[in-house]
Nucleic acid binder design. Structure first.
Lengths: 313, 313
DNA sequence: CGCATCCATGAGTCGCCCTCATAGCTTCGC
DNA sequence: GCGAAGCTATGAGGGCGACTCATGGATGCG
């Protein structure tokens, strides 16, 4: 037996240092002193016999070993939370505890509220928190992979590929539409407004095939800003349905026809969290989105995967 | 933040109490005093606000909440071990540390040895241990679910269903055959020898449809005992191929024809361990069982991984 | 060079957890 | 009924680990 014990407080210290990028900042987050963090990290490194952080003027950056330790540490901490929550609640059916959701902006605004309402109605002891994450770079899936969230609402096909160690499923497919100021005679002649997260490769291909689409002349910060620009008459945009829910009356939405591009929205989570009662309850509610409710979303349940009873590793 | 911290030492105390069945015995195992165990358990119960053990003359038995805590605790402790092992070893390719395998008797005897030989040849620092678990009740899957093993070799379809929080895959399907004393003129007239773990529902159905099969007159402890009885001329038996490997020369095996029953053998592990280097290395070796080894050189590696990139939950 | 901002280190303090000793409870055997 | 033999519960005291405080060293910046 090597008998190396890492206390939860030590794991939290590792995670804080990695996320804050320095001992001092980590100390602030942990509500302790820089000295305590330094002592703790040094102690852990001595116990493990491995240097976990490169120190320097810049602060502290994880070494490869440190990155592994931090990633595992986050998962262990999360499992400890699950232990506490599921030990306290009388049965697995009784779902309780925190549930951290990462979502991109439009999903957080238009997709999640009704889902979370039903979820908390069914499980009052559940405390879901939603973090808005830019769907660029690692995106929401990255937040889940790094243990910052328990479940992510992600767009598939757009942005970076999903890390292989995550599991998930597609929830719905939504079309892109043309949005422009209401009553404009020739909206396609307007300048194009684009935004950062709007970068599906499939969409881009379709985009390039349309000769009427100009290169973007305006680039906004997020889809909400795009919509506000369009409603002010500054131009037109091509946006997914989710970003267009609740679009102001001064805008007009035009279908792009049968060849319109679409994007897939789904959820991702880690295998070990997929089994927890809280995540499963949320996934159950999210699946309801696949059944076409009378409202807007053009859900396409056709492509639902046939699931084997046992999932391969 | 409720922020209830359970130190590894506390988790080990819970596990020890549950497994030893009492505070005093747990104290001996932990190399500490009964008083320390009592204080620790009481402290944990106060932190969680839940009674974890029923105390009495008999010692201590886990309450339902206690059983959940112990089961989660074992898994957290295991993940902490993995954290230490994988942080220390230079790369994920460098696999090291203990690997606990639960298997039913015939798999441990006839299936695992060559697999483990190849595994340890490839990863000398890996220390696999095999525990033989009766495939009755929770079986090997139960051992994995409760954190007593990292990976289980299980029969699917037979015994209890696999707990939903586990993951795994089928490795091979093997037929049942008739085994009887060599040279017997009418083996089907012999009395039937059965054993405890032999209880697949599918097999039973097939069984009932065969008019020549009598009800079992002898019931042995395990498949090895059955085989020994058969070889002594005490009767005939219907056994899966794995139990018949290395059957003595005094026995004779007769194929049961195209409608013969079969059983599926596979592996089971927890989602959080499925991602660890050690378990993945073992699974890779186990997968070799699916294809005859001499074909492996020509096998298309892509064909073995035709699984969807995202696994549904 | 003075300054700001990092981390490192040593001494002192506090709190937690363990040990020791003992008390309470239940179940046997007689 | 009574004591012995199992358990666990509890209180007092001590040791060790973790934190704080104060200070020092390294490094980049104007």
């Amino acid at each position: 037996m090597s008998t190396v014990d890492l206390a939860p407080q030590e794991l939290r210290t590792l995670v804080a240092v990695a996320e804050e990028g320095g001992f001092s900042a980590a100390a602030v987050r942990l509500g302790t002193t820089q000295s305590a963090v330094s002592h703790a990290v040094r102690g852990i490194e001595r116990k493990l016999g491995v240097v976990l952080f490169e120190r320097g003027r810049f602060g502290a950056r994880p070494t490869p070993a440190g990155a592994r330790a931090v990633s595992h540490g986050r998962r262990v901490l999360r499992m400890l939370d699950v232990l506490v929550a599921e030990t306290r609640s009388g049965s697995p059916a009784e779902v309780a505890g925190p549930l951290r959701i990462a979502a991109f902006r439009s999903a957080a605004l238009h997709l999640l509220p009704p889902v979370l309402e039903r979820l908390t109605a069914r499980h009052p002891a559940l405390e879901p928190t939603v973090t808005v994450v830019r769907e660029v770079g690692p995106g929401t899936a990255g937040a889940v992979a790094e243990g910052r969230a328990d479940l992510g609402i992600a767009t598939f096909g757009t942005s970076a590929p999903i890390p292989p160690e995550l599991v998930g499923d597609v929830l719905l497919e939504e079309p892109y539409s043309l949005v422009h100021p209401a009553g404009h005679p020739d909206p396609r002649s307007l300048p194009l407004v684009d935004w950062l997260e709007n970068c599906s490769s499939y969409t881009r291909t379709w985009w390039a095939a349309q000769d009427w689409i100009p290169t973007a002349t305006v680039r906004a910060e997020d889809d909400g800003a795009v919509l506000s620009m369009v409603s002010s008459g500054l131009g037109m945009a091509i946006m997914p349905a989710l970003s267009l829910t609740g679009a102001p009356l001064s805008t007009q939405i035009t279908d792009l026809g049968p060849d319109r591009p679409t994007r897939q929205i789904g959820y991702v989570t880690t295998p070990e969290l997929a089994g927890t009662a809280a995540v499963r309850a949320l996934v159950r509610e999210l699946r309801e989105l696949r059944e076409p409710r009378e409202l807007r979303a053009h859900a396409n349940p056709a492509a639902t995967t046939t699931k084997p009873q046992l999932r391969a590793v």
